[in-house]
Design a protein around this nucleic acid. Structure first.
Lengths: 122, 122
DNA sequence: CTGGATCCCCTCGGATACTG
DNA sequence: CAGTATCCGAGGGGATCCAG
């Protein structure tokens, strides 16, 4: 029997899980669906992400073929990130995710407590 | 400015990210959309998950209000898991995610290499 | 301006053993 | 059957410093 890792590229859910597991993956894809972003612009758009982390996330998404990275060989450097074809297809997921997320938020408003973080079983 | 953590319950993407970040979250939700599952049945359905891990994931999803846990006070114990109302709403996301995931898999077939895991920049 | 190189820390997933 | 109690290692996120 295959492990979940080996299901990458075979099962759509295992595949999606790996690609989206990054803490910033969804928000980056959401921003990039509108237009291209330069590295600096992206960092400003994401409130509290460091350079190192943003670089890692972008490289990961690029490795998965979700985004493209264009380097303009000039001084000062200019690098633009945009969605690949596969990344553009992801817009449908973002739409349903946004719709569901908003409904989730709305329905959780009247709850007295927010969910506890994982591994917290009080 | 709010950190990403504080956006939980406000931004649909930050909210979704936290709920779906679990390694098994998507696959568990996918299985539960069909029918109820007992703990043991779920463990058999998921190839290589341990009891401890499955328990954690289920508790997390329950804390987020995605699933409900019903305990039948009998010997031997019987516990059933099923989607909550919010969890059922998530089916739309699962549909688009499955459609996109399959397209992603198909388009990656002709690539010579699979994406490298994160932090692996060879 | 864009990010590479290090180092650190903490969380999460998992292994193992035990229990009502 | 369905967990709980521990312990552990890996690795992902982040801080800091440096570089073309």
């Amino acid at each position: 029997m295959l492990t979940q890792e080996e299901l990458f590229g075979k099962c759509p859910y295992a595949t999606s899980q790996k690609i989206l597991s990054g803490k910033w993956a969804l928000i980056i894809l959401f921003h990039l669906r509108d237009h291209k972003y330069r590295f600096n612009e992206l960092q400003k758009a994401l409130p509290d992400i460091t350079q190192t982390t943003l670089t890692k996330q972008l490289r990961t998404l690029e490795a998965y073929g979700m985004i493209t990275r264009t380097v303009y060989p000039q001084i000062p450097p200019k690098v633009e990130y945009e969605l690949s074809a596969l990344g553009n297809d992801f817009s449908a997921v973002l739409d349903s995710l946004e719709a569901w997320g908003n409904k989730y938020i709305e329905h959780q408003q009247h709850l007295s407590h927010l969910p506890m973080p994982q591994n917290d079983f009080r």
